[in-house]
Design a protein around this nucleic acid. Structure first.
Length: 402
DNA sequence: ATCATGCCTGTTCGTTTCAG
DNA sequence: CTGAAACGAACAGGCATGAT
């Protein structure tokens, strides 16, 4: 989604989501937890005040973080081993006792002290924004993510699964080098800051918004089976992308496949959209490189990402020739390696391709990979016999003429 | 990378309780 | 006695961890 679309969704959804006590309760729970377990006092926590599994009435640190604070991002599921040490049994051994992974130590006392100091170390690193230390911290990933959010709710997003984080970053087209989930949590919060409407609300509302708009679970099943379930981080694509000089020929180009329109055009469209924006970002990046390489760094700043601000312009990006002339670029992105299935062009884009002059269509191939290829087609004359065009959409209004 | 593990949850299905 | 509701054991599903 581009910013134009996001803005609409935020305008529609945020007032509905914020119209509830839920977020106040959520924040109250979080505050109570932090009040009961201030970082300074964590070291004096006793083992049984920490471990999960001490019976029904148990209200331990781990129990509360996982259960009571369930609405602040789930870390349920998987073994209680994620807490470093827990009390209970295993399938093979029904005896109730303290359980822990060997890497933490050889007895429950040592293990608990190690886990505690690791938690404190994590929170202190977060205070300093020391991501290297946060990354190196041995606390299990989901537990780590939740601790970070609970203690620093303005710095880290309440989303802990690496897959989900990647999924959202990809859909919001946020690029950057993310070596660990906490960095993604931070990137999402930085993104939130760019939307005053979101910034004014609780971070958990932002989380809800993301899950509503880009639900990772639902999406996996609705996408075409050949689409990847999670988009890779855009940054890799940006680095690996390059221009190519030849139009890639596919086995089926302009033969049978081209004849087949998609079965469900609407669904096909929404899939196209999800790869369209990454395609545009890739082209933006390549244009910057091209102008820099051509000695026109001054023009780099003047490139305009039109698609982000005006979806009726008929082109996606306004770039420049090295002599300063305008270059209008329409981006057509595909996950495929060639254009065997043809491409779609709107009536508006088609008109602009004829009227705007220096008009390019940039075809981005292998879009959702780490090595996208971009082919530039200058001033295409689509209706002069080089291409076969077929109308698949009409705009229809009622005839009130008589 | 891949696999086995064991945790928690929701669901099912059978049993018990109790009012009418 | 009957049907509804409550209870609870068993099971399957989902998932991140930890081991290999």
């Amino acid at each position: 989604m581009n910013r134009l679309e996001i803005e609409t969704r935020i305008r529609e959804r945020v007032p509905i989501l914020s119209n509830s006590n839920e977020w106040k309760k959520t924040e109250k729970l979080r505050k109570e937890f932090v009040r009961d377990y201030p970082i300074k006092k964590l070291m004096s926590l006793q083992l049984d005040q920490y471990v999960i599994g001490m019976g029904k009435e148990n209200r331990s640190f781990c129990y509360r973080l996982e259960r009571q604070l369930d609405s602040l991002g789930r870390i349920l599921g998987a073994t209680a081993g994620k807490f470093g040490i827990y009390f209970g049994r295993t399938k093979a051994d029904s005896q109730q006792k303290y359980r822990f992974a060997k890497r933490w130590g050889s007895n429950e006392h040592d293990v608990f002290e190690a886990v505690k100091s690791e938690i404190i170390n994590l929170l202190e690193s977060a205070e300093r924004d020391d991501f290297e230390m946060i990354r190196a911290n041995q606390i299990s990933p989901n537990f780590k993510g939740k601790l970070l959010f609970i203690y620093y709710p303005e710095k880290f997003a309440p989303i802990y699964s690496k897959d989900h984080l990647q999924h959202f970053l990809a859909h919001l087209n946020i690029s950057g080098k993310f070596e660990s989930p906490p960095e993604m949590q931070r990137a999402l919060m930085d993104y939130r800051k760019t939307w005053p409407k979101l910034l004014a609300e609780h971070p958990c509302l932002f989380m809800r918004f993301l899950y509503d708009e880009f639900n990772p679970e639902i999406e996996g099943s609705t996408l075409d089976s050949d689409s990847p379930k999670t988009l890779p981080i855009l940054d890799k694509a940006l680095q690996g992308s390059e221009f190519i000089d030849e139009f890639p020929e596919g086995k089926n180009s302009s033969k049978e496949m081209a004849k087949k329109p998609p079965r469900d055009y609407e669904k096909h469209l929404s899939n196209l959209k999800s790869i369209g924006t990454p395609g545009e970002k890739i082209v933006l990046e390549l244009e910057k490189k091209r102008l820099s390489a051509g000695g026109r760094k001054d023009l780099v700043k003047k490139i305009i990402y039109t698609a982000d601000i005006d979806d009726r312009a008929g082109y996606d990006i306004l770039s420049y020739e090295t002599d300063g002339a305008k270059r209008y670029i329409e981006v057509k992105a595909t996950t495929g390696k060639n254009l065997g299935r043809g491409f779609y062009i709107s009536a508006n884009e088609f008109e602009k391709s004829k009227s705007l002059g220096n008009y390019y269509i940039y075809f981005v191939f292998s879009t959702i990979t780490s090595k996208p290829k971009v082919f530039c087609l200058k001033n295409p004359t689509l209706d002069k016999g080089n291409f076969k065009m077929e109308a698949i959409n009409y705009h229809v209004t009622f005839n009130t003429g008589n």
